[in-house]
Design a protein around this nucleic acid. Structure first.
Lengths: 229, 229
DNA sequence: CATTCGCGTAACGAATTTGTGACGATTGCC
DNA sequence: GGCAATCGTCACAAATTCGTTACGCGAATG
């Protein structure tokens, strides 16, 4: 984590979604500035000079796609990364979103871990020093850019879900995550999955982590959840 | 104040709304204390020392706005965040609500998710930081994030119930908790368990705390309950 | 089109935790 | 010192919680 706090402009008209996202972003150490529509967004860009913008596709007044277009036309805001958010039903065309200049494109519902990873990826493009690429815990190294994990130098084979699970753990080694929290972060927000599914994936993660020997670094906290170390 | 399970005082006269909200708050891991009117609210503030207050605007006896004003005048309750809830028709003036000292203001009908996010935001404002919440009493250290407890540096092995019990004690060292209050807080609201069960778990907690030597820090208050120190 | 891969669920056994009743010890009060 | 109420502790059965395996399904891959 950097000592500086990158500013994220979050443009989303639905208060519920906005607040949830803001909560997660702040938990990740970002400074969050909110905007409820496109007009407000344009004002906040000038007032707050955000490092990155999360932009909902559908917005009152000025649509997200229009905001994006305008910002990418102005020299002073051209280099600010924009990640477009879109509901599945609005999945009209990803191509058009990127054509207007958006740097990335995420379809709801998204996994928080994934979105955070994308935010960091975009930020790294602009402010290389402020965002860490690799997470380390003991002899485990996780590279969020290449999606590779090694233990004691030897590469591990993880499925996508196990990867996100491990990434979540490694963000805060020692912290205990409840099954519900993990479902929220690793799987996605409004997804219906049995909490016991977490157990199975924890098992798979453990198997992968110990496949080349070494102690099991995943700690079970009875009645509470799981943690790394 | 509390760190393991923040206490929310929910002041709402409409039972249906109150219970729905309480259900959601409890699902989020909060401990909920209910009040049906302003008078009751003032009493509960002193008895339960909540970490945050959700306050309906319109209330019998003493109105929400008046409760807010009074609480913000008293030094010992000034820093407790208050979120005002108001029906759309009562949307008289948001300004006046914030003027009386409320920290946030939500208009019904609200999204539960949004309200939860705001509750967390307010709580984070008051809590020192989002990381490493440790409680300390003498040589006992309890970390609610990692769920680890040590005494004199040596790790202790506690069951889930003993952990919650100790966390409750350590939130307010010296405070005497009745068996009923402990059942409420540690076990849960609508649970039918003999009050003597508390005794057994106190015993188990004592055994764990003294397993590596050291004096028993749990004090029995005959006829009243238990306390730490 | 065939195959592989990853995912979610159910199920079963193992391990831990929990609540209760019983009984002895302690306390406060007269 | 007696006596009743309250508390501490023990053992044990019941209930929860967790780890693991097997399996069907759908999507991605070749």
């Amino acid at each position: 984590m950097s000592s500086e706090q990158p500013t994220v402009l979050l443009v989303e008209d639905e208060p519920a979604q906005r607040e949830v996202l803001a909560y997660n972003l702040e938990a990740e150490g970002f400074h969050v500035v909110r905007a409820g529509d496109g007009e407000e967004a344009m004002v906040m860009v000038d007032e707050e000079t955000p490092d990155i913008i999360l932009l909902d596709w559908m917005l009152p007044n000025v649509s997200g796609i229009e905001v994006c277009r305008r910002l990418k036309m102005r020299p002073e805001t051209r280099n600010v990364p924009i990640i477009m958010l879109s509901a599945r039903s609005e999945e009209v065309d990803r191509v058009r979103g990127l054509e207007t200049g958006a740097d990335d494109y995420v379809i709801k519902p998204y996994s928080v871990v994934e979105l955070m990873a994308r935010v960091r990826t975009q930020l790294r493009r602009v402010r290389p020093s402020t965002v860490g690429i690799q997470l380390t815990f003991e002899d485990i190294v996780l590279d969020s850019e290449t999606h590779r994990v090694t233990r004691d130098g030897k590469p591990l084979k993880l499925g996508p879900t196990e990867f996100r699970l491990l990434a979540t753990f490694m963000e805060k080694p020692g912290r205990v995550w409840s099954r519900e929290q993990l479902l929220d972060r690793v799987w996605g927000r409004d997804i219906y999955v049995d909490t016991r599914t977490v157990d199975v994936h924890i098992g798979r993660l453990r198997k992968a982590l110990t496949s080349h020997g070494g102690a099991d670094p995943v700690r079970t906290v009875r009645g509470a959840g799981y943690a790394l170390g």
